[in-house]
Computed example of a mutant assay.
Amino acid sequence: MIYDLTRPITSGMPVYPGDPPVQITPLPSPPWQISALHLGTHSGTHLDGPRHRFADGAGIDAIPPERLVGPGIVIDARGYAANAPIGPEVLAGVALPAGLMVVIRTGWEAYWGTDEYARHPYLSAGLAQALVDAGVTLVAIDAFSVDSTVDGNDTAHVALLGKNILIAENLCNLAALESGVRYTFAFLPLPLVYADGAPARVLAWRET
């Protein structure tokens, strides 16, 4: 079974505060159906490239395909309070060999479309550094950001992107995946040239 962890892109969907609104506008062009698409590079489920935080970092189009598909696990980080840091304790007892993708499940996807969604838990400096030290290749989360949206900080982004560790945000449907179980993940962004990020289709399936 293939699990789709992607937010559908729709007009008026929630976006990170200050980001461009999403608008899909049908255009008159009979007999064809064509629409104009207006959105930011970090709309919906998306991938952050190093350029998102570092001007000289790699853009989305420069990320090789082998970086976008690979083994990973879900880390259960449910139960944290609103706007609370998630500490490295969530990694206790978890085998985390180098080269894995790590998906942080906060449970905050349940608040999608409400004001509470922006008050999600986020990666503490300690957790971000622990993931860097473990040699993970990508960190994903079911929230607006790996950092606090309320406080607008960038600690986790700097720690991860600074080490060329990709970030994916606004995942959904994580309740279908078991924590600690090995899956193959595919993070497939639009190959926007020189872009800092791009909407992405995110899929997962159980390793055999």
Rank of each mutant, 00 (worst) to 15 (best):
L188Q: 05
A186V: 11
V94T: 15
A143H: 08
P21W: 01
A168Q: 01
N83I: 02
G197Y: 00
L96Y: 13
V181N: 03
A130W: 13
L68E: 12
V103E: 03
A81V: 03
A110N: 05
G126W: 08
L39D: 04
R105N: 04
F187Y: 15
S124E: 13
M1C: 04
A84T: 15
G87P: 11
A175C: 03
E109W: 11
E109N: 13
T6A: 05
L5W: 03
R206Y: 11
I9K: 04
L123P: 14
S148D: 05
V202E: 01
F54I: 09
G70T: 12
V102S: 04
P21C: 01
A134F: 12
A77R: 03
R206P: 14
P31Y: 14
G49Y: 01
G57S: 11
E116I: 13
A58C: 03
A95H: 06
I34Q: 14
V69G: 07
L192R: 06
E116N: 10
P191F: 01
L127T: 10
E207M: 12
Y194F: 11
Y16E: 04
S43E: 01
P121W: 06
P199Q: 05
A82P: 14
A125E: 15
R119F: 15
N173M: 07
H46C: 04
T10M: 09
P28I: 02
V69C: 14
R201Q: 12
M1L: 05
D76F: 06
G12E: 10
L177P: 15
M13L: 09
E178Y: 10
V94D: 09
I165M: 13
R53K: 09
M101N: 00
T208K: 14
K163W: 06
R53W: 03
G107M: 01
G99W: 07
G44E: 01
A125F: 10
Y117N: 10
N83M: 02
L174N: 01
A198T: 02
V74C: 02
S11G: 12
G44S: 03
S124F: 14
L96V: 10
I86W: 04
Q33V: 11
A175P: 03
W205Y: 12
L96R: 02
I34D: 11
V136Q: 06
N164T: 15
Q129R: 14
A175F: 05
G113F: 13
Y117C: 10
H46L: 01
G162C: 02
Y183G: 01
H38E: 08
P28C: 02
I63A: 06
I63D: 08
P20T: 11
V69M: 10
L27N: 10
A55E: 12
E116P: 01
L174T: 00
S145P: 03
T208F: 12
N153L: 05
D61C: 06
G12D: 12
V102A: 06
V102M: 06
I165Q: 05
S145D: 13
T149S: 04
A140Q: 09
G152W: 02
V146Q: 00
D115C: 12
Q33F: 09
P17V: 13
T41E: 00
Q129W: 14
V103L: 04
I60C: 02
L166V: 12
